[in-house]
Write a protein that binds this DNA or RNA. Structure first.
Length: 288
DNA sequence: CGAGTACCCTGTTGGC
DNA sequence: TGCCAACAGGGTACTC
């Protein structure tokens, strides 16, 4: 379940191990991994062979590396990890494993890049990239760690919505990079209920919420970032953070770290929401 | 058009 | 012990 911090850790790994390298060969082992590449797996393989990839970028949970050679090709290799995707930098003789979807070899030999994905919600594609952003993801909002992120604009866009607060947090066109786990954690830290009507959010509450989102993401980044300065570009480095720092997510029935009231799990948007019923009381007029 | 829901997928878990 | 339902959930296509 990679959210922004995990994806950022992967971005750093890609930047270190893949940026600047030239693709010698590509092999798509599972067509679903390139389903967003509309021209199909064969075209994906052919179009990427021989290109040189540039610096690794990220917006929210999307990653991309622009094609820098041939120059002005206006394309980028775009990746989304979905729920279980991993980008691994491994020696070529590493056994494939059952969930290997795509492998890239580079000129000059050395390690391969592998896209491994159990549940195949993730995928890669080669996308037109006319601006600084792949065309496909221009609707994705800036994330709270992006210097371009505008808190004032976010606050007013949030208030224009007619929905519940958590729904809005998970809407990547409003704010990106926040998934179910960090949404619950940030709401708990801000003492806000997931069904709080967005239009009633005061500016100071929005600012406090953003601060807590950044805090949660920042500590996850610290936890994952340290163990990832190596050959292995992976999403599981944050497991230490998950086990130690989560206050509500996955803690149904356990005592709230602030007030000892048992944490409650509630169905929400076909998934789960965790909250403290005392610290995060239901609003008078809840909005789904 | 904006809001909300169904669906994609597979390994793990828990109830009976 | 074995089987099946529930669960995990981001993003998008779809409906209302």
């Amino acid at each position: 379940m990679p959210e922004l911090p995990e994806v950022e850790v992967v971005r750093r790994g890609l930047h270190r191990w893949v940026a600047g390298r030239t693709v010698a060969h590509v092999q798509v082992a599972h067509p679903r991994a390139v389903r967003r590449h509309l021209a199909g797996p064969a075209d994906f393989e052919a179009a990427l062979t021989g290109v040189t990839l540039g610096a690794a970028h990220r917006r929210g949970k999307y990653l991309w590396l622009p094609v820098i050679e041939p120059a002005q090709s206006g394309r980028a290799l775009l990746a989304h990890l979905g729920m279980s995707g991993q980008l691994l930098v491994l020696p070529p003789d590493t056994p494939p494993g059952p969930h290997l979807r795509i492998r890239f070899g580079f000129t000059g030999g050395g390690c391969e890049l592998r896209f491994v994905d159990q549940r195949t919600f993730g995928g890669l594609s080669l996308e037109p990239c006319s601006t600084g952003l792949p065309d496909l993801i221009t609707h994705i909002a800036a994330d709270p760690l992006d210097p371009e992120f505008d808190a004032g604009r976010f606050a007013s866009a949030l208030r224009r919505r007619r929905t519940g607060l958590k729904r809005a947090l998970l809407d990547q066109s409003l704010i990106s990079g926040v998934g179910n786990i960090y949404a619950d954690e940030a709401l708990w830290r801000s003492r806000l209920h997931y069904a709080r009507p967005t239009e009633t959010m005061r500016r100071f509450e929005v600012d406090r919420l953003l601060e807590e989102i950044r805090t949660v993401m920042g500590s996850a980044l610290d936890a994952g970032g340290t163990s990832f300065d190596s050959l292995y570009v992976d999403i599981n480095g944050s497991s230490g953070f998950f086990s130690r720092s989560l206050h509500v997510y996955g803690r149904a029935g356990r005592a709230c770290d602030r007030c000892s009231t048992p944490i409650r799990r509630e169905p929400f948007m076909n998934r789960s929401s965790f909250r403290c019923p005392r610290c995060q009381p239901r609003p008078r007029r809840p909005r789904w």
